[in-house]
């Protein structure tokens, strides 16, 4: 099961990489080579792949992921405008610090996605992740040093959607 899912993912990456559909004709040799390579790769690396392969079968997760992409891109764009403002301002309006937040997400992939989202959104960057759900965040303009209020500002934007996608 887990090997089958890894096989499909590798085959999709292979097809995007060689793209055998150009010019009207389909290049079958590339597809056959991709099937052979991804079959052997999934045989060797299948055990290392993921902890819970049954999560790949839920259709609702993909719908929530599609909803997540525009929200993520919009906050990413806001983050860039924010950084451009702070960098080009002659007085450098920064007030940095490292704060601590708590998340209720459990699985490793969910925490990884949360940390990456926090790094790419306005003013925040993940510095350290602990096992019991605490994250240390470097914040370029500290509004609240308290754990609960900082959690409310930083984490809650993504946590509900990511819980539906990964948990």
């Amino acid at each position: 099961m887990r090997k089958g899912i890894l096989f499909l993912l590798l085959l999709i990456v292979w097809i995007l990489l060689v793209w055998p559909f150009s010019g009207g004709a389909v290049d079958y040799q590339s597809i056959v080579a991709g099937v052979v390579v991804s079959f052997f790769a999934s045989l060797v690396f299948g055990e290392l792949f993921t902890e819970s392969p049954h999560k790949f079968l839920g259709v609702k997760r993909y719908l929530w992921a599609i909803l997540y992409i525009p929200i993520f891109l919009w906050s990413c764009l806001l983050a860039n405008l924010d950084v451009a403002y702070r960098v080009l301002h002659p007085l450098l309006p920064i007030k940095p610090g490292i704060v601590k937040v708590k998340t209720r997400l459990k699985s490793k992939s969910a925490i990884t996605a949360l940390a990456n989202s926090i790094t790419l959104t306005p003013g925040t960057m993940t510095v350290e992740v602990l096992d019991d759900g605490y994250l240390y965040i470097h914040w370029i303009w500290v509004k609240e040093a308290d754990v609960e209020k900082a959690t409310l500002i930083i984490v809650r934007r993504f946590e509900n959607l990511l819980e539906r996608i990964f948990e």
Binding site: C76, L77, A84, V87, P96, T119, L120, I140
Partner: peptide, 14 residues
């Protein structure tokens, strides 16, 4: 940390 933050965000999206 500030440098890492600004540079990572802007250069990734750029």
């Amino acid at each position: 940390y500030n440098r890492l933050q600004a540079a990572t965000k802007c250069v990734t999206l750029g």
